[in-house]
Amino acid sequence: MALNTPQITPTKKITVRAIGEELPRGDYQRCPQCDMLFSLPEINSHQSAYCPRCQAKIRDGRDWSLTRLAAMAFTMLLLMPFAWGEPLLHIWLLGIRIDANVMQGIWQMTKQGDAITGSMVFFCVIGAPLILVTSIAYLWFGNRLGMNLRPVLLMLERLKEWVMLDIYLVGIGVASIKVQDYAHIQAGVGLFSFVALVILTTVTLSHLNVEELWERFYPQRPATRRDEKLRVCLGCHFTGYPDQRGRCPRCHIPLRLRRRHSLQKCWAALLASIVLLLPANLLPISIIYLNGGRQEDTILSGIMSLASSNIAVAGIVFIASILVPFTKVIVMFTLLLSIHFKCQQGLRTRILLLRMVTWIGRWSMLDLFVISLTMSLINRDQILAFTMGPAAFYFGAAVILTILAVEWLDSRLLWDAHESGNARFDD
């Protein structure tokens, strides 16, 4: 018995066209964080690309023209004298008006014999932002004059995390709450300039795509075929072959399989920071003279006294001054041990922890910024005066060393310790 099946006739004509040209192939790229070699397709503007294995951002879609970056830099340069030299806060102490600005706080630190601690604050609040705007201006002028731009481009990517104007702005709020127990506070004209400078700096850093600047100024022929001998440069993120001198053909720094002496430098910085954190938390970090009496505060006791007036601000200072430094030390110690013992479990967790400490590390400088600003506000000789204690130097040095330890660690070593050939990683 035959089955009668109805015929289905399409209502619209289906047209099949042959592909007349070869589909576009992607360029081969190595991930600078996990060293995976993959094919990167062509990316349009405002599109980002991520590593298929570790999800690290390979290409950032946010990109401004150099002219727009230069305009932002010149605007920031105009704001800087007002943000640093004009009063941020006014207080009335014992019937006398006192003005506080950024430069005055750094000068008070240096004047009291601790120039190293003052230079830490100076670099993060004044030096690094000033280098940022002058570097962008150098790129703008240098591109037109045919100057060598490689050193500036190499420095810009590392400079971003040292620009800490946003953290200093939080420190202004913390210092205001600490001082309000002794005097009446009012915002100064410099505060508005400083807030504007923070906003412009944040926007500029978020749109400063150094890798795209490398592509514009020093374009290189990408690798179009897969080759395990391809290496990625950690300076400019170019994937290719080393030249005859073993250097990256684009930025001219040595092109090595792994960062040289990464573990040794990381261990040295980490152990030194552990040693410095002990006096930083045991010795007094601030000293207040009130009517001839002397009151010393460690980091913890200062947080407890701050909690009596504002528990939320005390929580912020606790996280930045105690929780973050010790968390960074514990995480980095764990990561280094996992590399030495070739741990194969929990790779995803370790990668996330490394990215976390990379982002939060700079916030530990908050305590030094609060001390710097408070020193310029309260300084009335023996009637009422505020000065920093010996722990300030140890704390600042420990924070900087932990930042350097994270920067010096080559994250690809975590993958080397893991089993080879993993296309995915999980716990």
Rank of each mutant, 00 (worst) to 15 (best):
M1Q: 00
A2K: 09
A2S: 07
N4V: 06
I8C: 08
T11K: 06
T11D: 10
K12F: 03
I14E: 10
I14R: 10
V16S: 08
V16N: 06
R17T: 06
I19D: 05
I19G: 09
I19F: 08
I19Y: 04
G20N: 06
E21F: 05
E21M: 07
E22T: 08
P24K: 12
G26T: 07
G26A: 05
Y28H: 09
Y28K: 09
C31V: 00
C31R: 00
C31G: 00
P32D: 07
Q33G: 06
Q33H: 08
C34I: 00
D35E: 05
D35H: 06
M36R: 01
P41D: 05
P41G: 04
I43E: 09
N44T: 09
N44S: 07
H46W: 09
S48R: 11
A49R: 07
Y50H: 15
C51F: 07
Q55I: 05
K57P: 07
I58K: 07
R59W: 07
D60L: 06
D60R: 07
D60N: 05
R62W: 07
R62M: 06
D63Q: 15
W64C: 11
S65V: 06
T67A: 09
T67L: 12
R68I: 09
L69S: 10
L69Q: 05
M72R: 01
M72W: 02
A73T: 09
F74A: 08
L77S: 13
L78S: 13
L79G: 03
L79Y: 15
L79F: 13
P81R: 08
F82W: 05
E86V: 06
P87Q: 05
L89R: 03
I91D: 02
W92I: 03
W92Q: 02
L93C: 01
L94D: 00
I96G: 02
R97L: 02
I98C: 02
D99I: 04
A100M: 01
A100P: 09
N101T: 05
V102A: 06
M103Q: 07
Q104E: 05
W107S: 15
Q108F: 14
M109D: 03
T110P: 08
K111T: 09
K111D: 14
Q112K: 06
D114Q: 05
D114R: 06
A115P: 12
V121C: 08
F122N: 03
F122Y: 15
C124D: 09
V125P: 05
V125L: 14
I126Y: 15
A128N: 01
A128Q: 01
P129K: 12
L130G: 15
L130M: 13
V133Y: 04
T134G: 12
S135C: 08
I136R: 02
A137Q: 07
A137N: 13
Y138L: 06
F141T: 03
G142L: 08
G146R: 08
M147K: 05
N148V: 03
L149P: 10
R150F: 04
P151E: 02
P151S: 04
V152D: 02
V152Q: 03
L153R: 01
M155A: 05
L156Y: 14
L156P: 02
L159F: 02
W162Y: 07
W162Q: 02
V163S: 07
V163H: 10
M164H: 07
D166Q: 15
I167M: 03
Y168G: 07
V170S: 15
G173A: 11
A175K: 01
S176Y: 06
S176D: 05
S176F: 08
I177P: 09
I177G: 09
Q180F: 14
Y182P: 01
H184I: 05
H184M: 08
H184Y: 15
I185T: 04
G188W: 04
G188A: 09
G188L: 13
V189R: 12
V189S: 09
F192H: 10
S193P: 04
V195M: 13
A196W: 14
A196C: 15
L197I: 05
L197P: 02
V198Q: 15
I199H: 04
T204E: 07
S206R: 15
L208D: 08
L208G: 12
E211M: 15
E212H: 15
L213H: 14
L213S: 14
L213W: 10
W214C: 15
E215D: 14
E215S: 15
E215N: 12
R216W: 11
P219I: 11
Q220T: 13
R221K: 13
A223W: 12
R226P: 14
K229T: 13
R231E: 07
C233E: 00
C236R: 01
H237R: 06
F238Q: 11
D243C: 09
D243S: 10
Q244I: 08
R245W: 10
R245S: 10
R247Y: 13
C248W: 00
C248Q: 00
C248D: 02
P249V: 14
R250W: 08
R250I: 10
C251D: 02
P254F: 10
L255G: 09
R256M: 09
R256C: 11
R260P: 07
H261R: 09
H261N: 10
S262N: 11
L263H: 10
L263V: 11
Q264V: 04
Q264S: 06
Q264I: 04
K265R: 05
K265D: 10
A268V: 03
A268E: 03
A268C: 11
S273V: 14
L277I: 11
L277Q: 07
L278G: 13
P279C: 15
P279H: 05
N281E: 05
L282Q: 12
L283Q: 11
P284Y: 05
I285A: 01
S286A: 12
I287C: 09
Y289F: 11
N291E: 02
G293Q: 13
G293C: 08
Q295R: 08
E296S: 11
D297L: 06
D297K: 04
T298I: 10
I299D: 02
L300Y: 15
L300D: 03
S301W: 07
G302I: 03
I303T: 14
M304H: 12
M304W: 11
A307G: 14
N310H: 02
N310G: 07
I311K: 14
A312F: 12
A312V: 13
V313E: 00
V313P: 06
V313A: 04
I316N: 05
F318S: 12
I319Q: 11
I319S: 15
I319R: 02
S321D: 00
S321P: 00
I322E: 11
L323T: 09
L323S: 10
K328P: 00
I330Q: 09
I330M: 13
M332S: 06
M332R: 00
T334N: 13
L335V: 11
L336Y: 07
S338I: 14
F341Q: 10
F341P: 12
K342G: 10
K342A: 07
K342H: 13
Q345I: 14
Q345P: 11
G346A: 15
G346Q: 14
G346E: 11
L347H: 14
R348V: 13
R348T: 12
T349V: 14
T349R: 13
R350G: 10
I351A: 13
I351D: 12
I351T: 10
I351F: 12
R355G: 14
M356D: 06
V357Q: 06
T358Q: 12
G361P: 00
G361V: 05
G361D: 01
R362Y: 02
W363N: 04
W363E: 00
S364F: 00
M365H: 04
L366R: 00
L366C: 10
D367M: 00
L368V: 10
F369D: 07
I371T: 00
L373M: 08
T374Y: 08
T374H: 01
L377C: 02
N379A: 06
R380Q: 01
R380C: 03
R380I: 02
D381I: 01
I383E: 01
L384C: 04
L384M: 09
A385T: 07
F386D: 00
T387E: 03
M388W: 02
M388T: 05
G389I: 00
A391H: 01
G396P: 05
V399F: 05
I400P: 02
I403Q: 02
I403V: 14
L404F: 07
V406E: 04
W408Q: 04
W408D: 04
L409K: 05
R412K: 09
L414T: 12
D416V: 12
D416Y: 12
H418Y: 11
H418R: 11
E419D: 12
E419I: 11
S420C: 05
G421Q: 04
N422A: 15
N422D: 10
A423N: 15
